[in-house]
């Protein structure tokens, strides 16, 4: 059973108890429009909570993606290098950005749940 959480910066985090997978939300991909390039953190990189650690570029502009919690990157989604539009087609599944081992799993629990995030999006 995995835990799904969200940040105010429109990242999602799916945590299986050991590894957290991070991506941008469906709302974020819609707002960005056509994604043409994604820059991802190298495996092994230690991330501070809230650190800008990835970049997603649409035709129009570049946007930062932030580490939802502190931890160590274990994997970046290689499929996005070849097919950045995967972020538009499958933002919350195949279009994941990177995986990490969180320094403190409880920090993930503290993020917004789906209802909390839906409420946030409703105010935008």
């Amino acid at each position: 059973m995995s835990t799904l959480r969200f940040t105010k910066d429109h990242e999602w985090v799916r945590f299986d108890g050991t590894v957290a997978t991070i991506g941008i939300t469906e709302h974020a991909q819609t707002a960005l429009g056509d994604v043409v390039f994604v820059e991802l953190p190298e495996p092994g990189r230690e991330l501070v909570d809230g650190e800008a650690c990835a970049v997603v570029e649409s035709v129009k502009a570049a946007s930062d993606v932030y580490a939802p919690v502190a931890g160590r990157v274990t994997e970046a989604n290689a499929a996005l290098a070849e097919d950045p539009a995967l972020v538009n087609r499958s933002a919350e599944d195949e279009g994941w950005f990177f995986r990490m081992i969180p320094a403190d799993p409880k920090a993930i629990e503290a993020l917004m749940d789906a209802d909390g995030y839906a409420a946030l999006v409703a105010t935008l």
């Binding site: 056509d34 043409v36 035709v59 129009k60």
Partner: peptide, 12 residues
């Protein structure tokens, strides 16, 4: 209008 629902790539 910066884009319509088709999106910038499709419009281009």
């Amino acid at each position: 209008p910066v884009q319509y629902p088709a999106g910038i790539l499709a419009e281009h």
